[in-house]
Structure formats: structure tokens, C-alpha cells
Design a protein around this nucleic acid. Structure first.
Lengths: 107, 107
DNA sequence: GCAACTATTCCACTGGAGTCGAACAGATGT
DNA sequence: ACATCTGTTCGACTCCAGTGGAATAGTTGC
């Protein structure tokens, strides 16, 4: 049987058509910026694991932030069993906006 | 007579106490980003000169954007006769957020 | 002083972002 | 099939940012 590929795919924009203001806006929220930093340090994580950093944030709110980051091209959000794995699109971002991510991660 | 120094001074935050999300938010608007780029290329300019780039933007709207940039520590806005001169706080920004401005100006 | 000029502040309006509970959807295990 | 678990979407609400006209403040020249 053909191992049906039905994972819940999401829209991930091509970085070439993402505008800089969109990226900057996504990063201009403290909780989203913190998440990006966490992904940069820890590498890919499940949504559940990401949420453990701020357990008080409701799931729906967190999901909304993930969406904003994803639509700005900053992260990937892909199914993994009953979980979902979030990944920082680091190399792609470096290609599209050289130096930006490093500058933002620096502290 | 003592050449009274009564220029209309504005609040310019110390960059050390400006948070990164605030800066990113200020830059996340296309018209504000365009103005920052213009200042980076052209150097200090009067408000009037800045406005010439987009003559259709009402004065009050433009002034609002200047305020947002100023409060985020991106620009200085200082009196000069009956005009006002706007300056990009380039070196200070480089000290506080190394590489950020360069990354944002690059295109 | 007064008129002309530059630019900000004030005020109201509008649209959009952040928040969060509830409903919904997909995957797993028994 | 069913219950359970993870995570998103929906709907409603609040709040703030962007917008722009009108009023105001500061500067210069006459």
C-alpha cells in the first residue's frame, strides 16, 4: 500500500518574495524574538517543547505567533507524528538578508 | 545679550536603554525604512527635504513617523532656524546593535 | 508687532494585531 | 472504532498604530 502522504502541509513563502519590513515586523515582538533566539540556540524543536519556555501563554496565542513567523519566512512548521517541528530558516535567511539574523541574535 | 538657547528640544533616548524590538518595530514600516535609507545615503536633511521624497504624505503623518523613529533611537531631530534637521544615529546604533543597520540598509 | 513659514501636537477615526476560550483536525495507541 | 494527545483555526474582544485635518508653537523678515 502506498503510504499516503497526507501530512498537514502549511504555506511556507519563498524567501525571495518576502519583504524586509515583514521580517522586521515579525521580529519586533518580544515573545517572537525570544522564540527565534531559542530556535537558533537549541535547533529544531517541537511546538510542545517551544511552549515549555513560557507555559502560561495559551496554545492559540502561541500558534498565532508561529503563524506570523512562518508567513514572514523566519521558521518552518512541519508535521512530525502527532507533533509539529519548528525550524529556523537560518541559511535561507542569510542568503536573502545577509547579516540580519546574526545582528538580531547578537546580544 | 546672552544668545538665549531656547531651541525646541525633543526627547532623544539613550541608546543603551532602547530595546531591540522597539528598533525593529520602527523599521518594520516601509515608509520609515525608506526614510532611514535616504538619511543613510544623503546624510542629515531638513524635514522639508525629507518630505520631498513623498510629497503626498500629509505633514502630520510624516511627523508621526519621525516621532516613532526618534523614540526608537534611530534618528535625531533638532532645530535649525525655522527648519529642523533629521540625522541618522549611525555610529551610536552600530555600538548598540552591531551589524543591524548595515543589514537593514543592504539591498 | 505682525504676517509668512516650518513643523509638531491634538483630536477623532479606522483597520489591524495581540489575546484567548472553544471548536475543530490530524495522528497515535489500544 | 474510540479515546487521547498535539496543535491549528474560528470567533469575539480589546488595544494600539497609521492616517489626516485643524489647531498650535517656534523662527524669520519686514
Amino acid at each position: 500500500m502506498s503510504r499516503e502522504r497526507s501530512p498537514r502541509l502549511m504555506e511556507h513563502p519563498d524567501l525571495e518574495q518576502v519583504e524586509l519590513p515583514t521580517v522586521l515586523f515579525a521580529l519586533s515582538d518580544a515573545s517572537r524574538l525570544a522564540l527565534v533566539r531559542e530556535l537558533a540556540v537549541e535547533g529544531p524543536r517541537t511546538v510542545e517543547a517551544c511552549r515549555e519556555t513560557d507555559p502560561d501563554v495559551p496554545k492559540s496565542t502561541f500558534s498565532h505567533h508561529l503563524r506570523t513567523l512562518r508567513e514572514a519566512g523566519l521558521i518552518r512548521n512541519e508535521p512530525a507524528g502527532r507533533h509539529r517541528v519548528v525550524t529556523l530558516r537560518r541559511d535561507e535567511l542569510e542568503g536573502r538578508f545577509p547579516g540580519l539574523l546574526d545582528a538580531v541574535l547578537r546580544d
